[in-house]
């Protein structure tokens, strides 16, 4: 039972001090995520979506309560351990791609593997696999400046999944993309989710993303307002 959930939050509270008062970003949030979920945190700005992603991604710690990620209590992790957790088990996709401009597509995707001290042969295989998954193997030698927005985000996805993490956290991944590219990206992520059983957790208020989710968690004022499973029957 203990290992059933990749992510489990218990009475998660996050309070930010704001001068002489404080802002409650998360208010006793209880959520669990299983392996292979394709879930999204939706809600208006300030509802606590990014804060929850931060804590689950071990970038932040809760004020109260507990966040158990892959069996590790985030609030008890040292900087070194939380970096290790992110490095080995969590992939991040950002709104603005955040590719390293001086490196090629191949090198951008390769970077997380360098931190894992893999052999060059293993790295090459994993990078090319990841680029194949996102359909950009032929652009391995291109620089980010030579790519379109959609292609850049697909490289960012390849970078996030190249180490085959259990969890991918995506913060507004389609915010800077047009409709066509957004659908392309989401289809890519859905395919990866089904093929690799990687758990995807999105933070979004984009309807294009929401229609792909199999689970939609609505946050309102730091609380879970709705947590619903969605039957997706597209196309």
């Amino acid at each position: 039972m203990e290992n059933e959930f990749l992510i489990q939050t218990e009475d998660l509270v996050k309070i930010y001090p704001m001068g002489d008062h404080s802002l409650v970003a998360l208010d006793h949030v209880n959520l669990t995520f299983k392996k292979g979920e394709f879930a999204g945190l939706v809600g208006p700005s300030g509802s606590g979506k990014t804060t929850l992603l931060n804590i689950v991604g071990s970038l932040d710690t809760p004020t109260e309560g507990s966040a158990l990620v892959l069996g590790e209590k985030v609030e008890h992790l040292s900087h070194k351990k939380s970096a290790e957790l992110r490095n080995k088990h969590i992939g991040f996709i950002f709104q603005t791609f955040n590719l390293l401009p001086v490196y090629t597509v191949y090198e951008n995707v390769e970077f997380p593997l360098l931190l894992l001290h893999m052999s060059p042969a293993d790295r090459q295989k994993l990078v090319m696999d990841a680029l194949e998954w996102v359909g950009l193997a032929d652009r391995a030698k291109s620089k980010p400046s030579q790519l379109s927005g959609g292609q850049s985000q697909r490289v960012a996805i390849a970078r996030a999944i190249v180490k085959k993490p259990e969890i991918v956290l995506a913060d507004e991944p389609t915010a800077n993309l047009d409709a066509e590219n957004s659908h392309h990206i989401l289809q890519t992520m859905e395919r990866l989710n089904r093929t690799l059983q990687t758990t995807f957790v999105f933070s979004t208020h984009d309807q294009k993303v929401i229609q792909y989710l199999r689970r939609k968690i609505t946050l309102l004022d730091g609380k879970v307002d709705k947590d619903e499973l969605i039957d997706t029957k597209r196309n």
Binding site: G57, L59, H79, K80, A83, E84, L85, R86, N87, K88, I90, F92, F94, N98, L100, F111, P112, L115, R159
Partner: peptide
């Protein structure tokens, strides 16, 4: 700044 942020987020240790 962006590059350093991405590297931290990806899991590179601050000391590294």
């Amino acid at each position: 700044y962006g590059e350093i942020g991405v590297r931290l987020a990806i899991g590179e240790r601050k000391s590294h």
